[in-house]
Each structure stands twice: as structure tokens, then as C-alpha cells.
Design a protein around this nucleic acid. Sequence first.
DNA 1: TCAATAGTTCACAAGTGCGGAACAATTGAA
DNA 2: TTCAATTGTTCCGCACTTGTGAACTATTGA
Lengths: 122, 122
Amino acid sequence: MRPLLHPAAEDITVEALLHALADPVRVAICTGLSGPGCSLNCSSFRDIRNEPIPKSTLSQHFRILREAGLIRSERRGVEILNSSRFAEVEARFPGLLAAIVNAHRIQLAEKEASSKKRKRAD
Amino acid sequence: MRPLLHPAAEDITVEALLHALADPVRVAICTGLSGPGCSLNCSSFRDIRNEPIPKSTLSQHFRILREAGLIRSERRGVEILNSSRFAEVEARFPGLLAAIVNAHRIQLAEKEASSKKRKRAD
DNA sequence: TCAATAGTTCACAAGTGCGGAACAATTGAA
DNA sequence: TTCAATTGTTCCGCACTTGTGAACTATTGA
């Protein structure tokens, strides 16, 4: 089993960040890790969607976030604790994460509003 | 030949935007179209990289930008004029485009600075 | 009608992503 | 020590995407 790879802060690229954050599951993981000092294991996010996410898929999502430089993953006994590297990313690319997370938040709010409206119409 | 598809402003998704902007060529196209009232045909961007981009590839890039809602493409005689829809995107997702374009700008500046440093070392 | 020009579409090879099955690492209990 | 339980990773097959040359379409002007 190869060791967990983390890019240095200066090797983080915009392409990798955007690719990582173009997926709603991964954005949800990031917002879940955005609390101060927040550290969660992978399987905490198994039910972040309506359907449970297979653990191999979840593992890939975490790898992509990790190698993009968005999270740091450390073994703690039998599990792996994940924490955000948002401060480092913010230092390099100011405003980027906030804008993306905010955009996803807006989209989610609109989706919920429209589904509520649909319900009223029924 | 199917007509050029443009999503309505309210159907623009963050996923499609980030996916579109995760590619350096497409970001370069967007910055090239960012001038006020700017309207350019596709082949203007053939040499935006060091190597010329094949026109079929360029066509795909424009399709992805178009269907993400980032640009509007209209036939004008034999060519297709592309203009930005940044204002619409900005209205829906404030600060998103600016942050992304700015991040790419920062990364480019760093890359140029480090190549200059490498040159000095030779 | 024909040639020139600008893009699109098609087809194929190479790459990427999802998800089930098997594997690996760690812990705690017998 | 050994074994089972738990947590993730890796492997692999399949579907989907991407880049590119070749063929095609649309438009204009001669």
C-alpha cells in the first residue's frame, strides 16, 4: 500500500483544484471538513448523498482531494483522519475556495426552492 | 449539423462551469473574450498555446464553454462569433469567475517567475 | 457552379471514473 | 499469538470522456 501523497503548498495547481471541486460529492466533503480543527474519517461521508456511496468510490474521491492539496489525510489507528488545507489554498489563491463553495451553496438553495415549488404545485 | 446549444442563465451549473474552467486552454479562451463587447471567431485562438491546436479540438473546447453557459456563439457568415456570458454567470454566482481567472493568473505569474529564476541559474 | 474558408461531426485510440471483489493495515479480544 | 472486526486501498472490468485526423456542412464570393 503506497503512502498517502500530499503536494507541497506551492505545487497546488488551479487545474487540480477545479477538477476536484467540479464534483458535488467532493464539494460536500470539503464543506463537511470546513469547521475549525475539524478532522473526520472517510466513512463519515458514506451517506452524504441519498444513496450510500461505495467505499471504493469514496476512497477515490478522498485521493483526488488529497492530491489536489485540499485535504490532509493521516492514519490514526484503524482509520484515516482527514482535515482541510483550506488555509494554505487560500494563501495561494485568495477567494477561490470561498467563491466555489458559495456557488455550490447558491445552486443547492435554488434546487431546494424549486423542488418545494414543485411540491406546492402537486 | 445540429444548432448551437446555449443553456438558459438559470440552467447554468457550477459543475459544468468548474469542469469547463479546469482546462488551461479554455481559461485562456475565456480571458481572451473578457474585453467589453469582445467578439472573436474560434480560429483566433488556434495559437494560444505554443503548439497550434487542431481545429476539431478547438471546436470541442468551444462546445464545452458554450454548453457550460460561459460563452455565446453566433454564426456570422462563414464564421462563428463568440462572446462572453460572464455577466450572466456573475449574476448567478457572484465572484466565482473573478476568483478562478485570478487564480489562473497567479499560477501563470509564478510559473513565469520560476522559469526566469531557472534561466538566471544557467 | 465552383473554390475557399470556418466549424462541426464522425471514428478510433488513449485516458478517466465508478463500483464490486480482493487485499492490506490496525486494533482488541480470546 | 491468533483471529475476527473495522477501515481504507488496490485491482479490474466496463462505461464514458477526450484529443485528433478525416470527412462533411454551411456560407460567401468569384
